[in-house]
């Protein structure tokens, strides 16, 4: 079942659905997170941190574009994937769509940490993807992602070191952790099994979730933060047994989103609608 899938025209309905679902999970996470990061532009606590987060936003937009490119091979155009898409069809985790607590720098820092650890594990599980255009993109993205974790951790350590920063981090963790768990939620069970059975990604959501917990829980605890209920069995063993109570009401992946998503969607599609666009390729005609 892990023969290479090469030509998009040769995919059967099940393969196509699995491929599309995987790509939307990847692209939408990156795109929506970047949309949120840009809100810190010219508002971060220093020029250096402003540039760093803006740069991370640009990286994530670049990665979203790489994944949307692969969806375009399946016959979609950019406007179908972003500006004219039904907001309920977006497959990102709710972690990336939530608005930041106003003026709370601990929020984007913790959020990027929780997300970037998950992304690192997810990219590793795509290195040997049976879909060549996925596997071919992984190295490029990994090389650009390395800094993100470094950036988040260096800030986390500084914030955790002071009373106010520590308190803000704990608040952000209590608020964001349930939403971070939605990173590993299924779009639907069958298509998620197909993604792994077809070799598009070689780890299940549960396996990645477990690995993620075994990374983030000890690290956050080393900063004296209390991690909400996480399925930790004992000191170094983790089981990803997410119960309904641990998750937020909206799961993102299954198309249920928080109200904040509707507002964000309206915002980033505003100019496109305002200008009466029907395609995205050119914002202006070429000069004569």
């Amino acid at each position: 079942m892990t023969a290479s899938l090469e030509n998009p025209d040769d995919l059967d309905a099940r393969e196509r659905d699995a491929l599309e679902t995987l790509l939307k999970r990847l692209a939408d996470d990156e795109f929506v997170l970047a949309e949120r990061y840009t809100e810190w532009q010219v508002r971060a606590p220093s020029l250096e941190s402003d540039l760093a987060l803006s740069n991370n936003a640009q990286d994530e937009l670049g990665h979203a574009r790489l994944w949307y490119d692969v969806l375009e091979d399946l016959g979609y155009e950019e406007q179908d994937l972003v500006y004219e898409r039904d907001p309920a069809d977006f497959r990102h985790a709710t972690l990336v769509e939530l608005p930041f607590e106003e003026g709370d720098w601990a929020d984007p820092i913790l959020r990027s940490y929780l997300y970037d650890v998950a992304e690192k594990l997810r990219l590793e599980a795509l290195e040997e993807s049976t879909y060549p255009k996925i596997a071919d993109r992984v190295g490029k993205i990994q090389s650009e992602e390395e800094y993100h974790l470094e950036h988040a951790q260096s800030w986390l350590e500084r914030l955790a070191d002071g009373d106010e920063g520590h308190e803000r981090l704990q608040d952000a963790l209590d608020r964001l952790f349930p939403h971070a768990l939605t990173i590993f939620e299924p779009v639907n069970r069958d298509v998620e099994s197909d993604i792994v059975d077809l070799g598009l990604r070689d780890a299940t959501l549960e396996e990645m979730g477990e690995e993620w917990l075994s990374n983030v829980v000890p690290y956050l605890e080393s900063l004296d933060l209390d991690v909400p209920e996480s399925g930790q069995m004992d000191d170094d063993e983790f089981e990803f047994e997410v119960t309904q109570e641990m998750l937020p009401e909206e799961r993102g992946r299954d198309g249920s989103h928080t109200d904040a998503w509707v507002d964000l969607y309206d915002e980033f599609t505003h100019t496109y609608r305002e200008l009466g666009r029907s395609e995205t390729t050119k914002i202006m005609e070429k000069p004569e």
């Binding site: 640009q58 990286d59 937009l61 574009r65």
Partner: peptide
């Protein structure tokens, strides 16, 4: 050189 190159097109 960079995935987010704004001069791609």
């Amino acid at each position: 050189t960079y995935s987010g190159c704004p001069a791609r097109d």
